[in-house]
Amino acid sequence: MNWTFLLAEEAGGLFDFDATLPLMAIQFVVFAAVLNAVFYKPLGKALDERNDYVLSAGSTAKERLAQAESLAAQYEQDLAETRRQAQQIVVAAQEEAQKLSAQQMAEAQQMAQAQREQTQKELDAEKQSALSALEKQVSSLSQALLDKLLSVAA
């Protein structure tokens, strides 16, 4: 086997270089351009758009989650605040009610005392007047008795 055989144009062979080479190169470049138009560009665009969509959707979702969390925290705070206020109101109302009831009790007791004293006084006065009337009757009766006795004796 000699090397001229390998390089021989007419004989063919494995290492048969000819116009296939440059035409193949040109053809490949054209093919790459065609694939660029029908494959890489449209599908690449689709991939990029999907990436953007996923990223933006993810960030929007994250934003919303943060918003929801802050809202929940806000509500929680408001709720605690409201609870404290309600507690305060209840305590204040209880205090006031107690005060009021104590005051009214005191007033009622005072009034009852006063009425009792008044009644006592009236009773005393009536007793006094009854006693004096009785005394007057006793004295008039005793005078009459005396007069009768004296007239009999005379």
């Binding site: 494995l14 048969d16 270089f17 000819d18 296939t20 080479l21 193949m24 190169a25 490949f28």
Partner: peptide, 15 residues
């Protein structure tokens, strides 16, 4: 396969 011809592979390699 086109790749079993030396012209094809050399063309691609030169590219």
């Amino acid at each position: 396969a086109p790749t079993n011809d030396i012209n094809t592979t050399v063309a691609l390699a030169l590219l």
